[in-house]
Design a protein around this nucleic acid. Sequence first.
DNA 1: TCTATATCACCC
DNA 2: AAACGGGTGATATAGA
Length: 575
Amino acid sequence: MIPFSECWLVDFEFASPAGERPRPLCMVALELHSGREMRFWRDELLSMRAAPFNVGASALFVAYYASAELGCFLELSWPLPVNILDLYAEHRCETNGVPSACGDGLVGALAIRGLAHISAGEKEAMRRLILDNRSWSEAEQAAILDYCAEDVRALAAMLPCMVPKIDWPRALLRGRYMVAVARMERAGTPIDVPLLQKLRESWDPIKRQLVEEIDASFGVFDNMTFKAGRFRDYLIAAGIPWPRLSSGVLCLDDTTFRDQAATWPQLLPLHELRVTLSSLRLTGLEVSADGRNRCLLSPFRSVTGRNQPSNSKSIFGPARWMRGLIRPPPGTGVAYVDFTSQEIAIGAALSGDERMADAYSSGDPYLAFAIDAKLAPPDATKASHKPIRDRCKAIVLGINYGMSADAMAVRAGIRPCDARELLRRHREVYRTFWNWSDATVYAALLTGRMQTVFGWRRRIGNEPNVRSIMNWPMQANGAEMMRIAAIAATEAGIEICAPVHDAFLIAAPVNRLGEDVALVRELMSRAGRAVTGGLNVRTDAEIVRWPDRFMDERGAAMWDRVMRLLPGENGRAAA
DNA sequence: TCTATATCACCC
DNA sequence: AAACGGGTGATATAGA
């Protein structure tokens, strides 16, 4: 039963060139109970000041991937629907964890429910016609509207199948998140376009020059590509032994190179060259004419319910140093506000382990573990007990991922037996957490299901990965916390440029930036408490005002290196 | 010559 | 037996 008197199924067709906001082309809306249908072409939509149907409290707005429709609402400056049901989000929630045989698009979602729809080929043909972006003949307009109406009828067919399984309050919360997604996708991240242009133009010649210079003494490149065969020949000639993978091919990863270069320093320039060449990817970055990096956030795409934007299209995808391209325009600033050790807080709260919660609340859960485990005295500090704190940090972080003692030993640079001992102490000190974690894993394996506090679900497949199940509550509830914070912040009028898994980049005029940062932190804290049931999840904020550029300190060295390669004068990193 | 796969690098 | 969770994507090499 649908608890609304009106139920409008809506689909827009629109074009959105890389990085640009959507350009609505047409819309079809169908009311489920009465069968009333309306169709509008672009010019009519532009003349309307609000949606031509009820979007108030008594009506339900239904769409597939609603952020697209809501993005069109924002573009048209229409008041947004109060109640949103996104069948994409519900489809994902219902089938999450089961490999999707036909994908998670509208066609696939219909197919697994035994509902026929137009073929993917026809859909592609129509998309091409729509993206053609010219003026369309009357016949073409009619064809596009028919196609749009076809999708709306598909929604009408799918909705009754899904209604019995819908958890309304939570489904509507997910719908509300899709508004936040539309707003974040619309805002985008400000980019230093002139510098980006320069990098794009100069990179190829720079690369060529670097390869020529450095490869002169190695001869392992063929034009611009590294050849494993030639490298092997070089190694033989130079008498350097080299590790191989089980498949027999040479190990060419960063760690192996670094280790080998410690013994044969002549390899250092080659290693540096490989690192430099592989780290700059600018071709896919979607930047609009107004200097904003915008891309689909792909909400609910991962098993944990996290957003999953394309790494090449988003500025937060590639290596961190490239974030130096983020630069607020004159008169404005940006802030990167992230949850501090979010997953530790969630684990402590959901398990009810007060000792772990205290460790989190102390501000340094790693040192607190060292003290709790009696590896450091109660008055130890980060400075006084750095080595033991570092070891404990590696253990605590590894535990999140279900890491083995051996892997932790490698990471912490300690002996496996010492890592095992630290792990044992962790289980002992935080027994409540471990009992909960073990029980959660058993329950998941027995029932084949898991769920977050706000109802994001996961089914367990045939070959469950226990480490994945162990980590899922932390990551999935973390994603939930982010969704709630995103809803609250966007509804409060904060401009969120992008969500970054446990952080937001926000933008504001400089005279309001401080206030906005304070507000977003308060709203994130509230979202934290909503998920943890009261434990305060702390946040950190990094503020950048024009004319400075954004910089992640872990990327500053590489940024400077690249800037030195560029011809002419270039701004240094402002951390 | 094109495509599939393995490997690697990066993000949180 | 493997033993680090969730991802995307580029590239080099093998195979059709």
